[in-house]
Every structure is written in C-alpha cells, then in structure tokens.
C-alpha cells in the first residue's frame, strides 16, 4: 500500500498533480475536498457549477480521461495524474466547440446555470454513441449501436442526467442532434 502523501494525518492537506485543460496544476487539498470544490475554489474554474452537490443534477459534469463524470461526487485527491477537461477547456484556438456553438444557435439554455454541465455531457454523449454504447432508450441492446442510431429519443435519455429547471430540453436535444450530425 502506498500512502497518498501524508494521508495518515487525517484531514491534513495533500499535494495532487492533475492536468486540467491541458495544463499541469499542482493542487494542495484536504482529502475531503471534492474535485468540484477544487476546480472552483482552488483553481478558480467557476464554469463548473455546484447545484445539488449530491450527484443528482449533472451541473458539475466534467471529463476525466475523456469520460463524463460528476465532480461533486469525486475526491480531488484521488485524481492524481489524471487528465481533466472542464467547460473552460472546450474551446480550441479561440473557437467554440461545435456543441457550444449549437447550444447558442438552438437556444439550448436560459439562465445558463446548468449549461456547462449540459455541454460537457453532450460532448461525451456524441463520443459514447460513436463508441457504440447503447442506452435505456435502445430498443434491442443486443444489437450493435452506431452514431447514426443517435435519434432524439436516444439523446433525451442520454442527456437525462442533466437537469434544467428553466426546462430547455427540446432545444438542448436539437443542439445535440445538430452537433452530432456535424461531427
């Protein structure tokens, strides 16, 4: 067993190196600090939102190693060496990601508080479909799934981990469908 540096001294801070949006960041956090709090409070990346803090709304969605996860239910100290992408890291060369542009075009948000999470989720949804992952909306999970099968009911189900209280769902679906088609 290897100690996560200094962990035996319960509650004391530990150093963790993570790569956030392509940049190595040296964090010094308590073991109890969630990745969400570390991003917001330690790194000033406030695009990722705290809305429920219990894994029940999706507003804190970020990618770890390319996969969408909930940063409120993740301990920062367990992410040493990982590649993390937040909403702030989605643009390339000052240009919006296709999903970001589609959200603007289709008015996929109102207040915007859930939007970072929606977009991070949507980017991953398209990748998951390309990887052939089925969903609860897939009629026969025994059959191969392709991105061409990413219908609106599929998008609705796959985006259901992201609540939107302004309730922009149909516009979000339109944005994801549009971005998936373009990708």
């Amino acid at each position: 067993m290897s100690e996560t540096r200094g962990a035996a001294s319960g509650g004391k801070v530990v150093p963790v190196d993570v790569t956030v949006n392509g940049e190595v960041r040296k964090l010094v956090v308590e073991p109890r600090t969630t990745l969400l709090d570390a991003l917001r409070e330690e790194l000033g990346l406030t695009g990722t939102k705290k809305a429920c803090d219990r894994g029940e709304c999706g507003a804190c969605t970020v990618h770890i190693e390319g996969r969408r996860i909930l940063s409120c239910m993740t301990l920062a100290a367990m992410q040493g060496g990982k590649q993390i992408t937040t909403i702030e890291g989605l643009e390339h060369d000052g240009r919006l990601h296709a999903v970001q542009a589609a959200f603007i075009e289709h008015d996929g948000f109102q207040c915007g508080f859930c939007t970072s999470g929606q977009i991070m989720s949507a980017v991953a949804v398209i990748e998951e479909a390309k990887a052939g992952w089925p969903s609860a909306a897939t009629v026969d999970v025994g059959k191969a799934f392709t991105v061409a099968d990413l219908s609106k009911p599929e998008i609705r189900e796959r985006m259901s981990g992201n609540l939107c209280r302004c309730s922009c769902y149909p516009n979000i679906v339109a944005a994801v469908a549009d971005a998936a088609e373009r990708s």
Binding site: M1, S2, E3, A7, A8, G10, E30, P31, R32
Partner: peptide
Amino acid sequence: MHPFALSRAD
C-alpha cells in the same frame, strides 16, 4: 464533509 484520511491500496 467531516475530515478523514485517504490512502491507496495497491
């Protein structure tokens, strides 16, 4: 959350 220690098993 309450304070706790974290270690890793190999």
